[in-house]
Design a protein around this nucleic acid. Sequence first.
DNA 1: CCCCGATGTGAGTCCGGTCTCAATCGTAAG
DNA 2: CTTACGATTGAGACCGGACTCACATCGGGG
Lengths: 360, 360
Amino acid sequence: MSSNGSRRRDVTVADVAKAAQVSKAQAARALGNYGAVSEEVRERVLAAAEELSYRPNELARSMNTGKSHTIGVVVGDIENPHFGLATRGITDTAKKSGFNVILVNTDEDTAAEIDAVRVLLDKRVDGLIVAPASSVETQHLQRVQDSGRPMVLLDRKAGQMDIETMAVNMADISYESTRHLLQAGHRRIAFISTLTTESPYRPGMLLDSSQIADRLDGMQQAFQEQGLPFPEDLVRLNACDAESIRRITRDVLRVPNPATAVVASDGLIALSIVEAIQDLGLAIPADVSFLMYDDFAWTRLTTPPLTVIAQPVYNMGAAAAKALIRKIEGLPPLTPAPKFTATLVRRGSVGTLRTAEAHS
Amino acid sequence: MSSNGSRRRDVTVADVAKAAQVSKAQAARALGNYGAVSEEVRERVLAAAEELSYRPNELARSMNTGKSHTIGVVVGDIENPHFGLATRGITDTAKKSGFNVILVNTDEDTAAEIDAVRVLLDKRVDGLIVAPASSVETQHLQRVQDSGRPMVLLDRKAGQMDIETMAVNMADISYESTRHLLQAGHRRIAFISTLTTESPYRPGMLLDSSQIADRLDGMQQAFQEQGLPFPEDLVRLNACDAESIRRITRDVLRVPNPATAVVASDGLIALSIVEAIQDLGLAIPADVSFLMYDDFAWTRLTTPPLTVIAQPVYNMGAAAAKALIRKIEGLPPLTPAPKFTATLVRRGSVGTLRTAEAHS
DNA sequence: CCCCGATGTGAGTCCGGTCTCAATCGTAAG
DNA sequence: CTTACGATTGAGACCGGACTCACATCGGGG
């Protein structure tokens, strides 16, 4: 234990050069595999390096090549399997191209995101992949863009900014799944999301998340096309913790003219919502239909299995990494830009409403 | 915003110094908040830095402080919520102390792990947190240890090596949960794990994972104490993909003298096992009891809710980060070392076996 | 009035690599 | 026997900060 006081400077090219009895420059050339080095010197140097178990200092290397072979990834919450899978796609792809990943969690907090981006830039990452917490507060992203550092967005757009973004078209799939619910006779459809806002939902309000805004647009369009009124009173945001989710669920189901279908905006709150529904003594889909975003494996195990909106999350992560690396290497973006489509996976949690009620 | 030239080089202390009309050394002192600087100079420098939007190059800073304020985390699979949560614990704690996290996925492959450790060392991370893929092949970890770089293990021990490790005592909880099953009358208990081995399980064989070895030890002890024979034929490893899991599940349940209880070694295979059981037309717990490691939220949603072994994964990650940072800062390890205990959460998936069968 | 320590300051070195440049060597062409 | 040209080689200048050291400057104690 106490023996670790021995000062242990690591081996440098200079040490290797001395051992191989050549100049520092020659040793560096042999080790870095560049320039002209005679076979004899190369062998001597490599042997010496091996002997001293020399390892290059990537920090020093990065400093004068300007490349760190590291990309920064900023997400809201790795704990969420949605991002877990996306991160997997990113790291797998990055590794294949020789890049490492620095991961930062923001807890969906814009202040933390701003900080994260700054720190990563300071660390001179070669590029950034960001899942922006907000589609509105995007000055920090604009600054990255201006600085010329490659960046790709994941999952969510950032306001009007023209940044390559890997995300599914939420309006489309939301429209499609809302039609599915409408066709099953549902008119009172609740939409519950974790999105934090200062005031309750009002039609036309500016939402911090392009994702959620797009989903609501899709829903509204489906209602409108059928000449039906969109049940704005059933759009519920700020479902942040288990307690508030429970309250909101009760709120939309245990009232006069309750929701007959509930849409959960992500896989994490879906869990709490289903629990809350069960606690209320209601059965899915007999009493209330249920639909959720994200196709997690466990959704096949419940009784009944849940109808979900599956997003190609891994592929989106992989594509984001691929696109970023192209940018880093100065290649033009792939054309056509990759498109990602979510699919409605119909399992057993959406039931048909009796016509009498549907026409009420 | 107007001075936004297409200049590629970023602003350095030298630039700031020139703008503030002081020497590079003074500018560095003012910016780095060290040494003696007059109030007037400090203000001029900071103003110039602000004006030029100067940001320190952490790479350069790291190079001569020797500290990168970055820790490397090597895990088998972030996609697995078990590691997702642990990673969350690590990043949260690291951030609080001003450390960043470089994350590497090994796919539980030792070769990838060796590579990951080498790369992280080359990047001069201040320390490493590793969840070793193997408890046997640990030379690379020994090398890290010898190099004096701080390291903490997570989740799994590494052979005989004396490295601080944050993990639950698997033998204890395995013993406890096996007793639970035995008391419910089960004698034919299957244990299914993803652990990859070259040959099928044989009693006493050297297992690559201390985790699995400990769990089997715990099971054996429980059986032994009751004077009951341990059903070695029901220990099944190599349950790597959905297909093999399906085959194995059928294999232990659809044979003469089948298993009456199944233990799933992690949350990921648990999903496939439950599915396979359902596909076989068997009911939990009426036909077969089920117990799994890891308490994922969805286990409360199935019918019946699943009995699980809950591990304080987030806390283990957080403690690993805390311990590592203490090491990095040269502080002695916390005493007493933090202990983590898993708990058996009895829900509905373990049923009592009829005595007649239990005595067969 | 002079010496002393405390405070400010600039020049320059160092970290560990990459890379430029000029010098050297060998040898084939003239 | 020169001359020229490509392959090798070493010295040293970077990269962008941290830090050492020598040299002011200034106020107070003796």
